[in-house]
Design a protein around this nucleic acid. Structure first.
Lengths: 212, 212
DNA sequence: GTCATAATAGAACACATGTTCAGAACAGGC
DNA sequence: GCCTGTTCTGAACATGTGTTCTATTATGAC
């Protein structure tokens, strides 16, 4: 995101304010009046800048056709079940069939859709122990996971190493004849494992650390 | 709420879908076209019925001035302003007086009250660079902060070291004649600084890392 | 200084859009 | 039948609103 001039910030704020307040987008003249500008062309000019910088989307010839790309109004929160703990030594909890129904789970975490989006099969694990500091994950952190057995190259995944009987969170890269597991901390070295030794349990969507 | 005729249900559903799809309310002619009606007055008529029955609110003489009263009832989430970046080298952004009002800020983060609770003066910073890996914080992470100049022993705080001209996130312990700054990563050694060298900018409430 | 670019003002224009009206089809109650 | 209310049509009207044009004032680079 590029920086905005004070006028552009003012206009952007006004649009969101207006939207939250009234429930529909402002017209150009609403903005002009609300921001103390005398000309509609000034607003038009700055709206084009805002669109070019990716803050809004405009729809030509549409009254009040201003779309906020960072939509605060429409988002809502979702309940995600915390189905267990993840530790280096122990096996990863396997999400039960009914676990997606958050109310059926004992513990839940409420997250905004800004984090989980529309993804399905999302669950959470509480990290136990210090075995994942190399993934910049601390004891007590909560890891948001999406249940899947396929991950794209470079995605952070929960990996079960069968031989070592060890769970770990690493970025997964498929390489010829082997799989490279790259710690999130780029200062640390990757480890290489045989493809039939890894079991992808899901991919990591987010990490949340609560301190106070 | 009274029952709706099929046409009214159709229109109500169309408004909703249009809104979700496009990001702004439909015009009367949008509705007419989308519902297979040839006349705008039919839509006008049914919109009045919908308003009388409490489903929407109309704003006279305002283009697309249709407000859905149906809004998601009780959002337990809050908007937190992202007021800037935090990097080891640079100074910490100081929250402006109006920054608390999330709608007044350019960028915002939506978080559930599970994270921020009822705390006031909460803002967020985007972490730039790898200087805080010792606090288990990665490049791109978002740090939720509460503005305060006093922290309890052991709380994680944003600290500005005046002499070193450096910003850092550490647990703060007051000791006789000095202050101990303990990295979150307990495997790392603490550093000791003179009390008049530290400037507490606020305490860390949470860390959020979005990956996918 | 010159030149370019950003930002603003003001007004005119074109059309998108809400409003209104006369009328008609349709249903149900009497 | 007649009446009343609901729903729809089609069109004309008034205005809300995006667009565009020229001109003016910074501000900075050269």
């Amino acid at each position: 995101m590029t920086t905005l001039s004070s006028r552009q910030q003012q206009i952007f704020k006004f649009i969101r304010d207006f939207w939250v307040d009234k429930g529909y987008p402002p017209s150009i003249r609403d903005i002009a009046g609300g921001c103390g500008v005398s000309s509609t062309s000034v607003v038009d000019y700055n709206l084009n800048v805002l669109e070019r910088k990716g803050y809004i989307r405009r729809h030509p010839d549409v009254s009040r056709g201003i779309e906020l790309l960072d939509r605060p109004v429409r988002t809502s929160s979702r309940l995600v079940p915390i189905i267990g703990q993840i530790a280096a030594g122990g096996p990863l909890p396997v999400p039960a069939a009914d676990a997606w129904d958050a109310v059926a789970s004992a513990e839940t975490l409420e997250v905004t859709s800004e984090l989980v989006g529309e993804k399905q099969d999302v669950y959470a694990l509480r990290v136990k122990g210090l075995s994942m500091v190399d993934a910049l994950i601390n004891d007590g952190d909560i890891v948001l996971m999406q249940h899947t057995s396929v991950v794209e190259n470079g995605e952070m995944a929960a990996v079960w190493l069968k031989v070592e009987k060890e769970a770990t969170l690493k970025r997964v890269y498929r390489e010829p004849g082997r799989i490279r597991l790259q710690p999130a901390n780029s200062q640390m070295q990757p480890i290489y494992v045989a493809p039939d030794n890894v079991d992808i349990q899901g991919k990591v969507i987010a990490v949340i650390r609560r301190l106070a």
